[in-house]
Design a protein around this nucleic acid. Structure first.
Length: 804
RNA sequence: GCAGGAGUGGCGGAAUGGCAGACGCAUCAGACUCAAAAUCUGACGUAGGUGACUAUGUGUGGGUUCAAGUCCCAUCUCCUGCACCA
């Protein structure tokens, strides 16, 4: 008789078996499928059940692809190991980050192995490994050579707690993405990457991608392209002109004043004797405001400079004001204000009593405006030779009309800014640049890479904008690679996002010391077919890696310009009441105990059963009992039927094929939670059949094959007991025979006016009249006599419509 | 403010416009047991009825349809993203 289900025994046995005989082997003939996880930061806290979810999803998908179409699946894992926690730990405990990182990697690798995934550990990469970051530095050098990496002195986002500069993408609602501190501004000389040079391609190529619309939209908005015109306004009595960017050049006649950002280079000089004091006070007050204050204060503030500009279209003198609602780093830092047709300008004009001139109207007549008329549709008025035109079409033509008139040009603007790429911290890739007093910044020759991160005494960030590396004189002082004179090394390091921007390329050729990846391997194994991870990187990692991939494509390193063909964002697993799991909240659930008590297979299945994979789910420990019971019942069901040698009949054949069809459809739709419930349903059916005649071997085998990607250990064991000699994963994914699924008789609902009254069994291929006759019979004495319409939906429903 | 998503039993959730609540958790009852656990069987939206049954029910209000959780209009709530981008 059957042995009881012992998950520990089964799992130990098959772990060993797989180690001896790997199931995912590249024989050079199979088609490749690259299924990638967003690689983790090796945190000292280890994994919780939330991390498992993404890894289980990707493993299920990898194993499914392996069986379906017999793919060789590239399914690697590695470590995004530079970053602040290791460095902060070093500051506190004096342990070198390399050591604590290595320890954490070992710990997490063991935890990840508990998932029982088919990761190919020979492909492992670690961004802090000099053999790896050599190539991160190499990419930087190539960007520097192409003019895409440059230095700039400017006010950048500064996190006072992390004591480092941040990229725009790392500032969320005015706060540091990592630590949540309020971000301030600091003037620093920074290394920048010219991601804006790729803005159009990054935007347009989104169309090529099979990504969640949400992520595409977030990137689209982040890039923020808008078309319009630059218009030059002469300053009354001065040589200089003020250039503004506008998306609404059609409203130019309605520009009744101008506003400059307080940071605008002409702001101070536009002040007159009378306004000097007020202007300088305003500039100073703005400088002292934090980003958050500046955005949150709804009330408009501003000051009149005392100077005037000339509207180039009608020659009118208009006042020039300063206000902090104009952003210094978008467009030109100056705007023309059309209060009649812009909410913000309207509010500003009302508050400071500035003229409002309507230039677009519904019906060609001016009206009393109580708010800005912001629709683009209307008829031009008060607009000289433009009067009577349709504003919508004028909006399109105005830029070139202005260009012809010679006081402006057509232009495109982006919200995207260049990537602030230097960090004033220790634990990152050193930027491979030498500053020579004669030659300026010179790249470290590529044959000298990697430029190793030196040992330091103190990891403490200086907070002054200098990196801890600046204190190591023997490292900083070097010679210029170009002229040989004494020179100093760049002491800033790269941001955390550098190493993760290209790691997916390295997996397939991780020991190559000649190239970051060989052309041959890149062509063969890339791009990534399926990328699985959380949505939190939508405009960070996912934008940066697209940028780097396009750059590598441009310099001929890879033959594709988008790294991730398909993207799937799994939902987060939270603690009770939807609270994010974190050590500080004390609501972290570790997978370790669950694996011990219920087994890896149970936890894998519960991670999926807990809810739709793309939605957040609250973790509830009790639910795992359900899948554990399912696996035990399945185990007993299979073993009970093992020796019975039941012959397949029409019904078993039908069950088997509908099962194949149902499970496969749900899996293809990525509805993994309903795949699990599907297994439960069919298991319930087969348990019933077991009591009632038994189940044939082929049906049992089919069940086990389909279960294998989800519960690999139990499935291998049952497969072996069912007579399998090779791994179940070398079986092709079953295909349903639609004919065998057909039934002869179906139960239909019988409705009166759409309300179900009873059910009836009818032969499936019956004619409408016959079906209705049987349905009426089934109603017996409830049959109404005033039927006005009869509807038959084959195999589903008969609805009798009655006059009311 | 703008954009996107979601509101279904005690809970997680399921339903190509066609029998709402599959599957699971929890709960209750029964079987087994000296007992408990495990396991098995059954009940399980709400209201009424001893009962077969009847009525009602997918945030709210309308509409389209023979038929609406699903489509359309309006509205409320929650979540996510962006947020003075000219």
């Amino acid at each position: 008789m059957s042995t009881p289900f012992n998950h520990q025994e089964v799992e130990t046995k098959w772990r060993k078996r797989w180690e001896e005989n790997p199931i995912n082997v590249n024989d050079g003939k199979k088609e490749k499928y690259y299924c990638l996880d967003m690689f983790p930061y090796p945190s000292a806290n280890g994994l919780h059940v939330g991390h498992w979810r993404g890894y289980v999803i990707s493993d299920v998908w990898s194993r499914y692809k392996m069986m379906q179409g017999s793919h060789y699946v590239i399914h690697p894992m590695g470590w995004d190991a530079f970053g602040l926690p290791a460095e902060n730990y070093a500051i506190k405990m004096g342990v070198h980050p390399a050591r604590s990182t290595a320890e954490n990697v070992d710990k997490i690798r063991e935890q990840i192995k508990q998932i029982g995934a088919i990761y190919d550990w020979d492909m492992e990469v670690n961004t802090t490994d000099p053999d790896y970051y050599k190539w991160t530095q190499w990419i930087f050098v190539k960007m520097f050579e192409k003019g895409l990496a440059y230095q700039k002195e400017m006010p950048i986002n500064w996190c006072p707690s992390c004591k480092t500069g941040l990229a725009n993408e790392e500032v969320v609602n005015g706060k540091c993405e990592r630590c949540g501190s309020e971000v301030t501004k600091k003037d620093l000389n920074q290394w920048m990457l010219k991601i804006t040079a790729y803005a159009d391609r990054l935007l347009e190529d989104l169309n090529k991608l099979d990504w969640p619309e949400k992520v595409k939209k977030m990137q689209t908005e982040w890039i923020g392209r808008s078309y319009g015109a630059e218009v030059e306004f002469p300053i009354d009595g001065r040589e200089e002109k003020l250039t503004v960017f506008t998306t609404r050049p059609d409203t130019l006649y309605g520009a009744t004043f101008m506003v400059l950002a307080p940071e605008h280079e002409l702001a101070k000089s536009l002040a007159t004797q009378e306004t000097k004091e007020a202007v300088e006070a305003y500039i100073e007050a703005t400088a002292n405001k934090s980003n958050v204050d500046r955005v949150q204060s709804k009330e408009k503030t501003g000051v009149f400079t005392g100077s005037y500009a000339i509207n180039p279209l009608n020659g009118e003198k208009i006042e020039i004001w300063l206000s902090d609602y104009v952003l210094a780093d978008y467009g030109t830092g100056a705007i023309m204000c059309v209060p009649a047709h812009d909410d913000r300008d309207f509010e500003f004009a009302k508050k400071f009593g500035l003229p409002i001139v309507q230039v677009i109207s519904k019906d060609g007549k001016a009206e009393e405006l109580t708010e800005a008329y912001t629709e683009a549709d209307g008829i031009m008025i008060n607009s000289g030779d433009w009067n009577g035109m349709q504003s919508a079409s004028l909006k399109m033509e105005a830029p070139s009309m202005i260009e012809k008139k010679g006081f402006g040009k057509k232009t495109t603007n982006y919200k995207l800014r260049d990537w602030v790429f230097s960090r004033q911290r220790y634990w990152g890739e050193p930027i491979p640049i030498v500053h020579c007093p004669d030659c300026g910044p010179v790249a470290v020759p590529v044959e000298e890479l990697p430029l190793l991160l030196p040992e330091v005494e103190s990891y403490q960030p200086t907070g002054t904008g200098e990196s801890p590396l600046a204190a190591i004189e023997e490292w900083v002082n070097t010679t210029c690679p170009k002229c040989g004179k004494a020179a100093k090394r760049e002491t800033n390091t790269m941001p955390q996002w550098a190493g993760s921007s290209w790691y997916f390329l390295r997996y397939v050729d991780n020991h190559n010391d000649q190239e970051l990846v060989s052309k041959e391997k890149a062509d063969r194994y890339l791009p990534v077919d399926m990328y699985i991870g959380g949505v939190e990187h939508a405009v960070l990692h996912l934008l940066y890696s697209r940028f780097w991939t396009k750059f590598l494509y441009d310099i001929g390193v890879v033959g594709f310009d988008e790294p991730f063909t398909k993207l799937f964002n799994q939902g987060m697993i939270t603690g009770k009441n939807g609270i994010k799991m974190s050590k500080s909240k004390g609501n972290v659930i570790s997978p370790d105990d669950l694996v011990r008590d219920y087994g890896c297979d149970s936890l894998r299945m519960y991670e999926l059963f807990v809810g739709p994979p793309d939605q957040d789910a609250e973790w509830d420990d009790r639910g795992i009992d359900g899948v554990y019971r399912f696996l035990s019942r399945l185990w007993n069901m299979v073993l009970t039927n093992l020796d019975a040698d039941v012959k397949e009949d029409e019904e078993l054949l039908r069950i088997r094929n509908s099962m194949i069809h149902d499970i496969s459809t749900r899996l293809e739709n990525f509805s993994l939670n309903t795949v699990i419930s599907g297994f439960m349903e069919y298991n319930n059916t087969l348990v019933e059949k077991t009591r009632n005649g038994g189940v044939d071997k082929e049906t049992l085998k089919t069940f086990v094959k389909m279960l294998a990607p989800f519960a690999p250990h139990v499935s291998e064991e049952l497969w072996e007991r069912l007579g399998g000699t090779d791994s179940v994963f070398h079986e092709p994914w079953p295909v349903a025979d639609k004919k065998a699924m057909e039934v002869k008789e179906v139960e239909i609902a019988v409705q009166i006016n759409g309300k179900v009254k009873t059910t009836a069994k009818i032969p499936v291929d019956i004619a409408k009249e016959e079906a209705i006759r049987i349905a009426k019979e089934s109603l017996a004495d409830k049959l109404p006599d005033n039927i006005v319409k009869e509807i038959y939906v084959p195999g589903k429903i008969v609805n009798l419509v009655v006059e009311s």
